[in-house]
Measured scan of single mutants.
Amino acid sequence: DENEERIRAFALYKGIDPEKARELWERGEINKDDEEKAWREYK
């Protein structure tokens, strides 16, 4: 689903483990601007 892809995109963008990215996502600790930037680059 799209959230999974967004988490993966963010992990790649930040160079972090996707599981770590998922934890940040679930806790609401992902910066929305960074997340959008990562998503645009990923697509």
Rank of each mutant, 00 (worst) to 15 (best):
W39V: 04
R22A: 05
K14P: 00
K37Q: 12
R6P: 00
E41P: 02
A11H: 00
E29L: 14
E5L: 11
A21K: 00
E36Y: 06
A9T: 01
A11V: 01
E29A: 09
D1K: 12
E4L: 10
E5I: 07
E2P: 13
R22N: 01
E26I: 12
E5G: 05
E41L: 09
R27F: 04
E5W: 09
D34L: 05
E41C: 15
W39H: 03
D34S: 03
L24T: 01
I16Q: 00
Y13I: 04
R40Q: 13
R22P: 00
L12F: 11
A21N: 00
F10S: 04
E23K: 08
W25A: 03
I7D: 01
R8N: 09
E26W: 09
K20R: 12
D33L: 09
A9M: 05
I7E: 01
D17G: 07
L24C: 13
E35P: 02
I30H: 03
I30T: 03
F10P: 02
N3V: 15
E5S: 05
N31K: 08
E26V: 11
P18A: 10
W25Q: 03
I16A: 00
R22G: 01
Y13T: 02
L12T: 11
D33H: 08
D1G: 12
L12W: 15
R6I: 08
R40K: 13
E19I: 13
I30Y: 10
R40S: 10
I16V: 06
E29R: 04
D33F: 10
W25M: 07
I30L: 06
F10R: 04
K43N: 13
R6K: 10
G28F: 03
R22W: 07
K14R: 06
R27W: 05
E41Y: 12
D33V: 09
E29P: 01
G15T: 01
K32N: 07
E23T: 08
E41N: 09
E36T: 05
A21E: 00
K32R: 10
A21M: 04
R22T: 02
A38T: 02
G28N: 06
E29K: 07
K37P: 02
N31M: 08
W25F: 13
G28K: 05
W39M: 08
G15D: 07
W39D: 02
K20H: 12
P18T: 14
R27K: 14
A9P: 00
R27E: 04
I16S: 00
R27M: 10
E29S: 06
E2Q: 11
W39C: 06
D17Q: 07
E5F: 06
